[in-house]
Design a protein around this nucleic acid. Structure first.
Lengths: 348, 348
DNA sequence: CTTTAGCACTCGTTTCACACGAGTGCTAAT
DNA sequence: ATTAGCACTCGTGTGAAACGAGTGCTAAAG
């Protein structure tokens, strides 16, 4: 069990180390601490903290640095989120004040805003309803054997792809096929749509199309990309600022991880989307790779019926957590509000 | 004027420096050169080359390194493009052997392929016809006040955007408006389209739409993005490998330059697209910023009536130019061929 | 006139010794 | 329980010395 003063010392070590980036010694602490005790006393406390594994030395006679466990303890018991200033709140609102035509645009921009605000790297992931439903499907002939397929889902996602069809399918036949899709499949969750695409839909299409395979390919293809998660990353290059000392290979590894869409990033954010408060995960606690010297703050945001999304902030372990946690907490609310507004616009 | 042997020495210095990355000394040259002369003789030649400004020392008693002028001389008078192996050619063809549905996909992939092939950074820019023409315009209502606008141009570009319209415009009115656009504007160069959008088109639309402003906004907006150039970059992160020694700020500067679409990149590639052979520009010769230790190989590719595009390779100054120039020369042909095939598919 | 052997010289790199100082742990006194 | 005092540790910085790859120059040989 830690004494009151030991807790104070730990907090101060974290504060000073975050500010200066240098190991903190007992004399320095004596000057900075609000209480008046000698450096020897502080040294005793520091020894206890080290025994508890909360701080370490960089070498046998250096100042102390918070350990991963030290940060963990701090985050679990000591941090108190800082309130964001009115000014900052205004900046956020201002940044969101554009007009958006697609849900994705808002989510993408939120990563941008958050990275600008913090000078770290932000990752955002659109709200995901457990069962996205199909609300519309269109095929638009563009001439020259080209067709654009458009798929609309109830979470506001609009997916489109251009396909080249081998022979000219008569637009009459297409019309009918599209009508079948819209009559039979609209309103169903995407998972069910995908299922029926393999079972009874082909035979229904058979009546109108001589070879429904091409059509099914197109539909299946675009269905797949509508169902897959999409990440947006803002401030990739900020990594270079706060990862300064570490070597270039490390940097490349992290950038590749972030740029590789799907899969790995989902794991980094902690698996499938679910509602969580603002959470901090430290480098060694992260999967799929141990991001030494980095930590990740994640938070979910809630858009009611339209699902739950995630927003995350990747930065150095020596982050001003108090401030960042407060910021993210406000930010998630703003983002949720902005998305709710967006949906309200054409939902009723 | 350089003697035959001096030229040989220069070539060998460049070759060895490219291979090893270390300054080349007279003894090393004596071993590697095909002719048998003493190191003293070589030293004399090296002194002449240094007087001519083609090589320099890193310090007063080090081996020699090619100077920018030295590389310039080499590139202007000495390089002979290496033939690409059958294997490599096969790799290129193989990489292009997918099915493409959009012209952009081919161009984007070409940057990817080229960067994989070389481990450098590749930039590609789609073929640009001096006067792109409008070949089609569609508006597809998606429900919920949303409309997707699709614009097709004769260079195979397909641009689409989703808009939210304030009040429900009757689809009847829209139909008519679209017909006007298609009847009046299709076949015209985009520049003329943009012009007429400001002059006589509004009054024509007036007959069918009560407030054509919204429509014109949409159309103008999408027209703009169809007309703007688009760059594709492959192997951004390779920069980290070949820029290893240089500092992290340099790296960030270059990455920002590359990631900032439009504008700066056009300048880097040497202004507006035109037909050029494979060209090498060295760091100090580059605009808008002096990319010390880097050099840029550019080449245009020609797709006949469908315009001329650019492809470029950014790498370290110590590149195996002979090989890279040969490669890029073959690559431009392959890319042109691939695009020609693509257009032929629905052009007749 | 060109080439070569020889040699003194330069300068970056590595190694080692040494001093400095910030910081520690421990002990004994308060 | 706190504090003053002190020996000890260890990273950092400095300077001298040894090393070696490479150079420029001179004088002899071809």
């Amino acid at each position: 069990m830690l004494t009151k003063r030991q807790v104070l010392v730990l907090k101060e070590i974290i504060r000073l180390f975050t500010e200066s980036g240098e190991p903190v010694g007992s004399k320095r602490l004596m000057r900075e601490l609000p209480i008046h005790v000698s450096s020897a006393t502080i040294r005793n406390d520091m020894a206890s903290l080290e025994d508890a594994g909360l701080i370490t030395k960089t070498h046998s006679s250096s100042g102390r640095v918070p350990s991963t466990q030290g940060y963990r303890y701090y985050l679990d018991h000591l941090v108190e989120p800082m309130r964001v200033s009115h000014q900052e709140l205004a900046t956020i609102k201002q940044a969101f004040s554009q007009r958006y035509n697609k849900m994705d645009e808002i989510v993408a921009q939120s990563a941008q805003i958050l990275s600008n605000l913090t000078s770290y790297t932000a990752i955002s992931l659109g709200p995901e309803v457990t069962n996205i439903k199909l609300t519309g499907f269109r095929l638009v002939p563009l001439g020259n054997h080209q067709v654009m397929a458009i798929l609309v889902t109830n979470n506001g996602n609009i997916e489109n792809k251009v396909f080249t069809v081998s022979q000219n399918i008569s637009s009459d036949e297409l019309e009918k096929a599209i009508r079948i899709v819209n009559d039979q499949l609209v309103g169903l969750p995407l998972i069910q749509v995908a299922q029926r695409l393999k079972t009874d839909v082909p035979s229904m299409l058979m009546q109108y199309l001589t070879s429904p395979e091409g059509f099914l390919d197109i539909f299946g293809n675009i269905l797949k990309s509508a169902a897959s998660e999409r990440f947006y990353v803002g401030g990739r290059l900020n990594l270079m600022d706060y990862l300064g000392d570490s070597d270039i290979h490390e940097l490349k590894k992290i950038l590749s991880l972030i740029d590789a869409d799907h899969g790995d990033l989902t794991e980094l954010l902690g698996g499938p989307i679910r509602q969580t408060p603002v959470q901090v995960r430290l480098g060694p606690e992260l999967k799929p790779i141990d991001l030494a010297n980095l930590s990740l703050i994640t938070a979910s945001y809630d858009v009611g019926d339209h699902g739950t999304g995630m927003i995350a902030l990747l930065g150095p372990t020596q982050m001003p957590y108090s401030k960042m946690i407060g910021l993210l907490d406000v930010f998630r609310e703003e983002l949720a509000k902005r998305l709710t507004d967006y949906y309200a616009n054409f939902d009723q």
